[in-house]
Amino acid sequence: MADLLRNAARAFYELVLEDASGLSSTLTRELQLESVDADTMLIDWINELVYMIDAEQLVFATFHFDELGPSYLVARAQGEYLDPSRHQLKREVKAATYHMSYISETSRGLDARIILDV
């Protein structure tokens, strides 16, 4: 699940930033979520990242999970304030939706889909 959350965050930043490579880890924020199930937690996770961009202009490069249950987490997220000279926003995301979302177990690990409203 930790890898799924990290990869979902990476995919999200690829979609919203002009160049998502080379994000630095100059500051740390604690993120806490409590959801009804794992599917919802993944959606809540992306919505947390949406909020951090809109509210604080923060983007994260690395995540350390201090606690991670089937529907709750406490994470230390390390990242930086958006610097338009290095990381320009290319998309405004309203939210991660429940629409057609899933998490499924495959032989290669967890597979998930989330659709963003942009």
């Binding site: 919505n47 909020y51 809109d54």
Partner: peptide, 8 residues
């Protein structure tokens, strides 16, 4: 963003 967050 206000409306987006109210919906979320």
């Amino acid at each position: 963003g206000l409306g987006h967050q109210v919906c979320t």
